[in-house]
Design a protein around this nucleic acid. Structure first.
Lengths: 131, 131
DNA sequence: AGTATTGTATTACAGTTGTAGTCAAAAAGA
DNA sequence: TCTTTTTGACTACAACTGTAATACAATACT
């Protein structure tokens, strides 16, 4: 298995949609993926296929060619990918600190009363770890 | 002045670096910007110039041509741009909820004890608004 | 005045992304 | 078996990005 610290290749916006489908369930055939995206995105089958192929080329997804109809699966966990994206995003947009982003969200009332309460409890429940 | 609810054009990664310079101080000549980026990014002067021109084309920055040497300035506040980016980012990566992102950060120990305390107080100080 | 410098305008060029289309082989149906 | 449908392989093509270079006009220097 891959080393968890390996760098995640960059995943484009459209590719994320496809990966989200693979993360929900895998392996899946191209057709499964196409079906999952029906109604969600207005893409032609070929478009989805191209995206899958690109994900494989990039090494973000894997493909099993044992059967005649190939099946695809993620090579990175959603968590890893989210973290990687979030890190580069926050660095780029907020100069690197999560705090400054959250402050903005809070000050702009983008968060509901309810969400704020939830966040508080999440923060409270976080046990102090000793490493 | 622009309507604050107008959509912010998309700003590429390299363009963000340039905008950050303009947000710190403006207006600035191309040369000012180039100088600010020296040591920070390893870009040729022409590259920075191209980025400035593109920002103007996109309508993210403005240019004053009164003087022989043009000066550039932002057309959107940093805040607006950050918010726009953050919204699309969170939708794309975290299915739209700030909470899920924060949960991940907290659970992965990406936040220091100190940062967590700060976040808590920010959340606490948030006055309940009545609209 | 002639030359070097500087700022602006235009052009370049490859890689990524969005969004498919074409072609051929294999399978399924008539 | 002949035909239609599926799959997979390869190709297309424009917009956006990163990363400049070239051409030209206005200044500045000698």
């Amino acid at each position: 298995m891959r080393n968890m610290t390996e760098k995640v290749p960059s995943i484009s916006e459209a590719e994320w949609e496809v990966m989200n489908v693979l993360w929900e369930k895998s392996p899946q055939t191209a057709n499964d993926v196409i079906t999952s995206l029906q109604g969600q995105k207005d893409w032609k089958a070929k478009t989805v296929r191209t995206l899958l192929d690109r994900l494989v080329q990039k090494g973000v997804a894997g493909v099993n060619k044992e059967q005649r109809v190939y099946t695809f699966y993620p090579l990175y966990s959603q968590d890893e990918c989210q973290r990687a994206e979030a890190e580069s995003f926050i660095k780029r947009i907020y100069g690197g600190t999560v705090k400054s982003m959250l402050v903005q969200f809070i000050e702009e009332d983008s968060l509901s009363e309810e969400e704020i309460e939830e966040l508080k409890s999440i923060l409270d429940e976080k046990p102090k770890k000793k490493k």
